[in-house]
């Protein structure tokens, strides 16, 4: 083991580099903390709260909370995982996630986390919101039904593509992604080569005409669950259907 500052994550001592967040240190040590809005390479955001851990007894988001020497972090515990599962359920019922007809199925992080946490069907009631689809752009589709407001596209467009095609409008339950033109995606400078299109964890932001290219059985999460070994050993096998 190398010298230097360390902290404890689920009983394991892991090294940290000053300035790292808990999730960055965990990733570097090869320990998976479930997450949705966080993506390495994008500025930490902290909105989905799926990466919630207990640091010295206090609940914090691992993606924004700085790792500090000697801290004790609990992540893979029954209590923390119960919160994560309920947060995932909230995201499922808040939108319209019809996995069986979604081209992101098998490659979708929300769906994959649903399997990891053994969500057969949410206990919460579905809200079935009425949301729009913006298919105006010749090469890109926005399906608001599937958007989980993680802001990955907002950050990628702003920081990687230097465009600021996307932003948030509205408040509370009315919050949604909007495009810079205020109306249609086709009236913005969004382009099919934008990196913003590579970061959507769900099927909300898609390139057109490339769906279902990978056959079932070979998709990202068909063989190995998201984050490696699942939390729940008896997680159901990845059948198609509504998560």
């Amino acid at each position: 083991m190398s010298e230097g500052p360390r902290f404890t994550l689920d009983g394991r001592e892991i090294p940290l580099v000053p300035g790292q967040t808990v999730i960055e240190a965990a990733d570097a040590a090869g320990i998976y903390i479930p997450r949705l809005c966080h993506k390495p390479g994008l500025e930490p955001f902290g909105s989905c709260r799926v990466c919630t851990v207990k640091a010295n007894g206090r609940s914090v988001a691992a993606c924004t909370y700085p790792a500090s020497p000697g801290m004790i972090v609990e992540s893979d515990t029954e209590e923390v995982n119960a919160h994560r599962k309920l947060l995932l359920e909230m995201l499922f019922v808040e939108g319209n996630h019809f996995c069986m007809s979604c081209e992101k199925s098998g490659n979708c992080e929300l769906q994959a986390l649903g399997y990891r946490f053994a969500i057969a069907a949410p206990q919460l009631e579905f809200q079935f919101p009425v949301r729009d689809v913006d298919a105006s752009h010749p090469d890109i589709l926005i399906d608001h039904n599937r958007c989980i407001l993680c802001s990955r596209c907002v950050r990628a467009s702003r920081d990687l593509d230097k465009k600021e095609v996307f932003g948030f409008v509205g408040r509370g339950p009315h919050k949604r992604i909007a495009v810079s033109s205020g109306t249609r995606l086709r009236d913005t400078d969004a382009d099919v080569t934008d990196q913003a299109l590579d970061v959507c964890p769900v099927g909300a932001l898609l390139r057109k005409r490339v769906g279902f290219a990978v056959p079932v059985g070979q998709r990202l999460y068909d063989k190995v669950p998201i984050g490696g070994a699942p939390v729940v050993p008896e997680a159901p096998v990845a059948e198609e259907g509504r998560a």
């Binding site: 808040e94 809200q127 509370g172």
Partner: peptide
């Protein structure tokens, strides 16, 4: 609280509405 949540994080954006309903 449902109306006044900023909507940033999942638990507050969804949770208040769940409780109200």
């Amino acid at each position: 609280f449902e109306d006044e949540s900023c909507g940033f994080c999942t638990p507050c954006r969804v949770g208040n509405g769940l409780l109200r309903r």
